[in-house]
Amino acid sequence: MSPQAPPVATARALAERIAGEVGLVILGKPDEIRLAVSCLLAAGHLLIEDVPGVGKTLLARSLATVLGLDFRRIQFTSDMLPADITGAQIFERRSERLVFQPGPVFAQLVLADEINRAPPKVQSALLEAMEERQVSIDGESHALPSPFFVIATQNPLHQAGTFPLPESQLDRFLMRIGLGYPPAALERKLLRGDDRRELLATLRPLVDPGSLAGLQTAARAVRLGDAALDYVQALVRYTRESPEIELGLSPRAATDLVAAARAWALMNGHEGVYPEDVQAVFTAVAGHRLHGRDAGLPGAVEPARKVLDEVAIP
């Protein structure tokens, strides 16, 4: 069933090339790009949380191009209906029958832009699709393409008319990353340089869906030793027991952490999952699922950061 995994060195080189290629378009964000790539290698969905205009869409588009995925962008709005995403039965005039008209979610890489603008019903329609990798309309299920990734973006500010994703929904994103403003020097270059969007046109796919699946298999095959497993468990246990954290990491989060750490280890050419691999992805994987009790108070430390500092590496 699972496709042939390429040798580790090849897999690593390919993953590096993907990240490098995307880095040509998104300047000065190598870590974020690598996180995004490893998120996709771990077959997970990505949530990018940042203010508008920092290149979220551009990142999603470049990834889609480089990975050779067909791309669809859905702009979420407050007046949307679930059918606007999933599609609906439409009466076809010529055949005088109702046929299923697939919605925009039927793409290999879906950019769900400003997901928090849509009402909860719409959000959950998308999240169901992410989870089940299929869409059920009128008792009929329609499989989504494979691979299937969702990159959702949301605005961190609670503006009027937004619906923040509830915790159970956030749990479905493997990672949440921020992009942030580019460093000043790079921004200068950006200001002076070409329009990045034009650069996008120069990108060429590096992999086909088959070899992308091979990369995912290679990531799943990265060795997770007992020592690394102990570390993951220690981290998870800490979040569940710490009085400073409202809700500990779910089993799904723990699984996601392992998957992401494996993908990261693959990208770094490690023989197995090293503690640094776990740490590198921990904030991205756990950040959006952990809430400190003193969140919002001045001087509050981000819980994920604190966990990493506190938990000893076994």
Binding site: L81, A83, A88
Partner: peptide, 9 residues
């Protein structure tokens, strides 16, 4: 109402 509920006939 969603379009798909409309009875076009």
């Amino acid at each position: 109402d969603t379009p798909r509920r409309i009875v076009w006939r």
